[in-house]
Design a protein around this nucleic acid. Structure first.
Lengths: 160, 160
DNA sequence: TTGACATGGACAACCAGGTTGACCAACACT
DNA sequence: AGTGTTGGTCAACCTGGTTGTCCATGTCAA
């Protein structure tokens, strides 16, 4: 009956390969548009910050990583000029994060490129088909213990 | 044009999340079945070795990584008893890799678990639907600039 | 046969993006 | 006040890679 010639292991590779393809292309194009040092994790982090994570501990919770890891990421973002930090006057333990214009530029471009690539996929697959694919994937991610708007586990690998 | 536009960034997260879900489950179950130290990369590496990569350089080419990285992976596999190496009598530079019974056990169990998880997805989505999803993903991986093309696993002729 | 080049492997240093664990200063709550 | 929670930091380590350098061995042509 089923010509399930495909193995579960292949399915995993298919998912990973698709992800890498998409993300590598975004990173490549981001470099072309003036963000040569941007890494996927930077984008995700800035998005989380914009969504309300205004301190390292906050970001850590949001990304479901340790606060030490979050601190490292923030240090990288500061180094590259995507965010700045300043001590919270109301709680001097806290260091508030603010996204710079450069950081805003990064996620603006990043979002655009992501959407462009998705649009190409849509052209190829058909609108309804891509929507269905996304709905299906949502089911697999949905019963996950992991939080989708918490891409901490989005470590990923360098391109080429 | 209803709920059309999901963002490209979300699509990336969906793909990665699905992959992680699948693989995490396999690793977890592998631990239950007596392979507590098995990592995904070990499985892929052993598969590549079984498919014909019988030296470090060979494995490197097959996995599209550097030979140094391949050597490290092999060292880890040897350490865990999944493979052994011995100098090639016909070319003493070469160190031939041989998979141990333990290594065979790992990929046998691994393959089974991968397939079990896939079967659960199939139940949930429907056979035709999962098949279509795989076909779609294949298109994205197919025009890949990156080297995921290790014939041993991408074109997997598994199942012994 | 020899000399040029290719190949297999190893050593070392490094990177990204995480992890544990220990710790301290500052805040919050009785 | 004292106790406990929270924000941040230092340090060491892990995984799965990367360069760069080096050398012994193998191959092939002249």
């Amino acid at each position: 009956m089923v010509m399930s010639s495909r193995s579960g292991a292949d399915l995993a590779l298919l998912l990973l390969g698709s992800y890498r393809n998409l993300v590598d292309e975004v990173v490549r194009e981001l470099a072309n548009r003036g963000y040569p040092d941007a890494r996927p994790s930077h984008e995700y982090a800035i998005r989380a910050i914009r969504a309300g994570a205004d301190s390292a501990s906050d970001l850590a919770r949001r990304l479901a990583i340790t606060k030490q890891a979050a601190a490292k990421t923030i240090a990288a973002l500061v180094e590259r000029g995507y965010v700045t930090t300043e001590t919270d006057p109301a709680d001097i333990r806290r260091k508030n994060i603010r996204i710079t214009d450069h950081g805003i530029g990064l996620i603006t471009e990043g979002t655009a490129i992501f959407d462009e690539v998705r649009a190409r996929w849509e052209t190829r697959l058909g609108t309804a088909e891509l929507a269905e694919l996304e709905t299906q994937l949502e089911q697999f991610v949905g019963d996950s213990p992991i939080n989708l708007d918490a891409p901490g586990w989005a470590a990923g690998q360098e391109l080429r």
